[in-house]
Design a protein around this nucleic acid. Structure first.
Lengths: 232, 232
DNA sequence: ATTCATGTTAGCTTTAGGTTAACTCCGTGG
DNA sequence: CCACGGAGTTAACCTAAAGCTAACATGAAT
């Protein structure tokens, strides 16, 4: 239900030089509740794209004035179209154009002629795909003078930005999910290393040591016979 | 459902000197059901923040009159904005400003340009984060002036935090699961030591002694010929 | 191919925690 | 009064766990 609502609001820019296609395809998409804008060539498409910021652009390859490839290339450089999906419309057999399309950053392609039903389901699936890409959780944790940015795999410690090697980062990341909580060695292995991998008994220690080196001894407490914990 | 209700009511103060941004971002947030207030510079933001007490403030860094950093700094000093989340809006590449942001107490940052969908999901997650800030429901037992935290493997006794060696902790932990109940020596051995290990007859005593040393004699009663119990 | 950074291991040292042994204390009953 | 059983105390001893270091392995980047 919700998804439908959201999708219903999605804006689509349809670009083709044949008015028939614009009409037929446009009709079908509007029927599904999308807001449809149209353009008849690359230049026009670019302008409208900037202005309307569509969620999805369906771009014919062969067009006068500015073809789809070129238009796509330019669109990809516009920050305001960052999250926009671009898909090509290409005649069956024109496979080379599809390759060129991916080359300039397209997300998918659709071959003409296309049955309306197929088209609509493709559009839905493309929009859904983007839905799932939404990174959601802001992965930033602040703990005194330590800031962990899980999105960027970096930390800021005492105002100094630094990047940690992967395992160190993940270990730190785990420990800081619940400051104060003692994580058993077993738990740590499960989560940071994965329960299939088996590493020697001293491996965790070594990483803890490196973290201590970088972030100060006192933040990482050892609880003998149990594990480690992070404290502010 | 409930979450939606709560989120729906959330107040957001959006601060940016570019009217375009205010409009676009504001539109998206309103669409999600948030109450959105706007301001075009730090000074105005400060005033509105005091008055409206928003749940979340989205603050552009670069602004005339009073920039985001300064505004944030001042906001953090206002007790009425105690629970408010502050997040910066910063142009990609301006990483230094993000650091400065954290420095003055911001909770997160968002880079421009930002896709509406991403922004919305970030906002939701930030508001949710606050919601969840008091979850715990963890392994904590309180008994008079003794608090046992099984997650942290530590105790707080008469307001003083201390960590106990593992066996002592487990012994204490066991006895306090049922204050007043007498645990037979045999039981204690089974549970704390495991029924395979065989230890000498005086071992338990020694640990009891250490506990008595640390937590006072009177809490640990000996029942001759049987075992020990913990009493408040 | 070479280099560099990261990750893992082996083997050693150190230490906290756990156990024991030997002795003491205390109350009960012969 | 003394002997006995159970518990308390202490310090010495032992050992498993953690710390450390350097070497080795892996793998990505050029």
């Amino acid at each position: 239900m919700k998804d439908e609502m959201k999708d219903a609001k999605a804006k689509i820019l349809l670009v083709d030089d044949e008015p028939d296609i614009l009409e037929i395809v446009g009709y079908n998409l509007k029927n599904e509740g999308y807001q449809v804008y149209t353009a008849e060539n690359g230049e026009e498409a670019l302008k409208k794209a900037k202005k309307k910021r569509p969620d999805l652009i369906i771009l014919d390859v062969m067009m006068p004035v500015m073809d789809g490839i070129e238009a796509c290339e330019k669109m990809r450089k516009l920050p305001e179209l960052d999250g926009t999906i671009i898909t090509f419309l290409t005649a069956r057999g024109e496979d080379y154009s599809m390759i060129a399309g991916f080359d300039v950053g397209a997300d998918d392609y659709i071959t003409k002629p296309v049955k309306p039903r197929v088209l609509v389901s493709k559009v839905k699936s493309l929009l859904r795909r983007r839905e799932n890409e939404a990174p959601s959780a802001s992965n930033i944790v602040k703990l005194g003078d330590l800031i962990i940015d899980r999105d960027q795999y970096k930390i800021i410690f005492k105002k100094e930005e630094m990047i940690l090697p992967r395992k160190e980062f993940e270990l730190l990341s785990l420990l800081t999910t619940k400051p104060g909580k003692v994580f058993k060695r077993e738990e740590i292995l499960d989560i940071v290393w994965g329960n299939e991998v088996i590493v020697g008994g001293r491996t965790i220690d070594v990483h803890i040591r490196k973290l201590r080196e970088k972030l100060g001894d006192d933040s990482f407490k050892t609880v003998k016979g149990v594990g480690y914990k992070y404290v502010k």
